[in-house]
């Protein structure tokens, strides 16, 4: 879409307004997290006292720990299931029940969470009635719910990467004597590793952030961070939550910046190496050569 011209003024203005809209609330949240006053929106001088009281809040600390545990466990499961699902969607073509499969893969991404939460809860209740398991709601039920939600996202990311990859890479491996399982682990998996990594991070974020499904699926003693935040902000503004938000934004911001920087510099190095190879040989590059170009366009 880029046509070599700088952006027109109107589009620049659009971007400026758009980013103001996106960022003003976040920035205000951070600024007022340093407010000494207990009245969150009335400035009472600079202070870090809410950060201190946040760290001393055992309820929040244990909720954070539980949330991180659940996020890691469900992101891991989601990556395994989602990668297989993405592979099936991208490479197996049509099979009996493929339409239902593809449908079940997309629906969790958009289905209102009150519905998925309720339905999964009722599943676990029924399972308990018939099989006696799971005996109570908590870590396992939340994990299963988050895994179902996140695997859909992983599948989409992995699938779109697989569609970009030249199929003849896998055919070449088969031609050279590798069996399907080996091809998957030696060729396919390394090629989609970046997509799997971003699927993993996306899953972590979704799991850490999920409130509604979690509320349905959690039981006594399993209170995640969003549940604590929700129970607090339901009652009104809370300076500790401001501090928590500031820390979250900071951590995510640093992480995204670093990841982005690493990705960009890897891409730049690659471009430089390609240019050097062309000069060295003094021969022009083949246009649209699948093997070399495939990785440079990784998302």
């Amino acid at each position: 879409m880029y046509n070599g011209n700088p952006l027109p003024k109107t589009l620049k203005g659009v971007l400026l307004l758009g980013f103001l809209f996106l960022y003003v609330p976040i920035v205000s949240l951070i600024i007022y997290s340093f407010n000494a006053s207990k009245l969150v929106t009335v400035w009472g001088g600079f202070s870090t006292r809410w950060y201190v009281s946040l760290i001393q809040n055992d309820q929040i600390i244990s909720a954070v720990t539980l949330s991180i545990k659940i996020a890691l466990a469900s992101a891991t499961a989601a990556v395994v299931l989602g990668t297989i699902a993405g592979f099936v969607l991208a490479r197996f073509g049509r099979f009996r029940g493929s339409t239902l499969f593809a449908g079940m893969m997309t629906a969790p991404m958009v289905m209102p969470e009150v519905i998925t939460g309720l339905s999964m809860l009722l599943l676990f209740i029924s399972m308990q009635q018939f099989f006696g398991q799971p005996s109570e709601r908590g870590f396992f039920t939340i994990w299963a719910g988050h895994t179902t939600l996140c695997m859909a996202y992983v599948a989409v990311v992995v699938r779109s990467r697989l569609i970009e990859i030249d199929k003849s890479l896998e055919e070449a491996a088969m031609d050279l004597g590798a069996r399907p399982m080996k091809i998957f682990f030696l060729i396919t998996l390394p090629l989609v590793s970046q997509a799997i990594a971003s699927g993993f991070l996306l899953s972590i974020t979704l799991s850490l952030d999920d409130l509604v499904t979690t509320s349905f699926l959690s039981g006594p003693g399993a209170t995640t961070l969003p549940m604590v935040i929700f129970s607090k902000v339901r009652l009104g503004l809370n300076p500790e939550i401001n501090a928590l938000a500031a820390i979250t934004v900071l951590l995510v911001g640093i992480f995204v910046l670093v990841a982005n920087y690493l990705m960009l510099s890897a891409q730049r190095n690659r471009m430089r190496a390609m240019a050097a190879a062309m000069r060295e040989n003094d021969a022009p590059a083949p246009p649209g050569n699948g093997a070399g170009g495939a990785v440079a366009t990784a998302p």
Binding site: S168, D175, R179, A291
Partner: peptide, 20 residues
């Protein structure tokens, strides 16, 4: 015979060199 059992090898149009 499956491709991986054939004593035949192919050079692909896109070369299909494993980029990693």
């Amino acid at each position: 015979l499956a491709p991986y059992d054939r004593p035949i090898n192919m050079m692909f149009q896109s070369y299909a060199l494993f980029p990693h």
